[in-house]
């Protein structure tokens, strides 16, 4: 059972945001406390990915009104790198390839920038190799991937494992995993899900953005939110996801109709 005294990690209030002058989020409210796992579900275009990019600070997305607080700090003025350093992690739906940049070096620079923020000593190449090899075991990744360029030529599943590896190294307070399950076969899904479970800490929280119930069979959420038209329209427990799986998104439409009728 979640204790009401536990600390709030993320608090989003009446968030409106746009991309290319088009408003996508129309007033999102969300409260995430430590130790919690939240799932956000919804159709394509409902604003799930936009929400994740706005939290991480993507420069193309503009916040029109509302607030995002992380551990009591307003983060809207912070650059993406500053948000990352204080412990906000975004696992990308489509991790980009960066040719010529060594994965090992990238992971090391990223890890050290977080460690610096936590006033931990920076790791040299040798120390870091030990750490990264140990963390790679969590997602059953072959150390050969360290020698390659960031995500270059990785399969869909390898890219997602590389994302979870980054999460394992950065030890964030909140991880927002944007469709981490998409494009994974069942084995890869299990590996990734078990990685996420192993990394869960009482002092951190996770937001899973997903279309499907199948990830939630592996990771049990404390809360399930359904997003439509840039808003969270329904919040429940894991049963909500199961209902959704059974009746499909039509029930959102029915839900909306009900609302409209009430209005």
């Amino acid at each position: 059972m979640i204790q009401s005294t536990s600390e709030t990690i993320l608090s989003i209030k009446d968030l409106h945001a746009s991309v290319e002058d088009q408003e996508i989020l129309h007033g999102v409210n969300l409260l995430v406390k430590e130790g919690e796992i939240h799932a956000i579900m919804g159709r394509n275009g409902s604003g799930k990915s936009t929400l994740s990019k706005v939290i991480a600070g993507h420069p193309s997305y503009k916040v029109l009104s509302g607030s995002i607080q992380f551990k009591g700090i307003n983060i809207l003025e912070l650059a993406p790198e500053e948000r990352a350093r204080i412990g906000i992690f975004l696992g990308f739906q489509y991790p980009v390839e960066i040719p010529g940049v060594s994965n090992l070096e990238f992971l090391r620079v990223a890890t050290n920038s977080r460690r610096k923020e936590l006033l931990q000593s920076e790791l040299d190449t040798f120390e870091f190799e030990d750490l990264v090899k140990e963390r790679m075991k969590i997602v059953e990744m072959d150390p050969a991937f360290l020698e390659r360029s960031v995500n270059e030529g990785f399969s869909g599943g390898e890219k997602k494992r590389n994302e979870i590896l980054q999460m394992a190294l950065l030890e964030p307070f909140i991880s927002i995993l944007d469709e981490t399950d998409s494009g994974l076969d069942i084995d890869a899904l299990r590996i990734v899900a078990s990685g996420i479970n192993k990394l869960a800490q009482p002092s951190s929280a996770t937001i899973l953005i997903t279309h499907y119930q199948r990830l939630l069979d592996e990771i049990t959420p404390d809360f399930v939110h359904i997003m439509a038209d840039g808003k969270i329209i329904k919040t429940g427990n894991k049963e909500l996801a199961i209902d959704l799986e059974k009746s499909g998104y039509d029930f959102i439409d029915n839900n909306k109709k009900d609302k409209e009728m009430v209005n």
């Binding site: 991480a56 600070g57 993507h58 420069p59 193309s60 650059a79 993406p80 790198e81 948000r83 990352a84 350093r85 975004l90 990308f92 991790p95 980009v96 960066i98 990238f106 620079v109 990223a110 920038s113 977080r114 923020e117 980054q166 950065l170």
Partner: peptide, 15 residues
């Protein structure tokens, strides 16, 4: 590419 830049920044690496 803006996406590559954002990817690196979102891992704590400055601009």
């Amino acid at each position: 590419s803006e996406d590559q830049l954002f990817y690196l920044q979102s891992r704590g690496i400055d601009f």
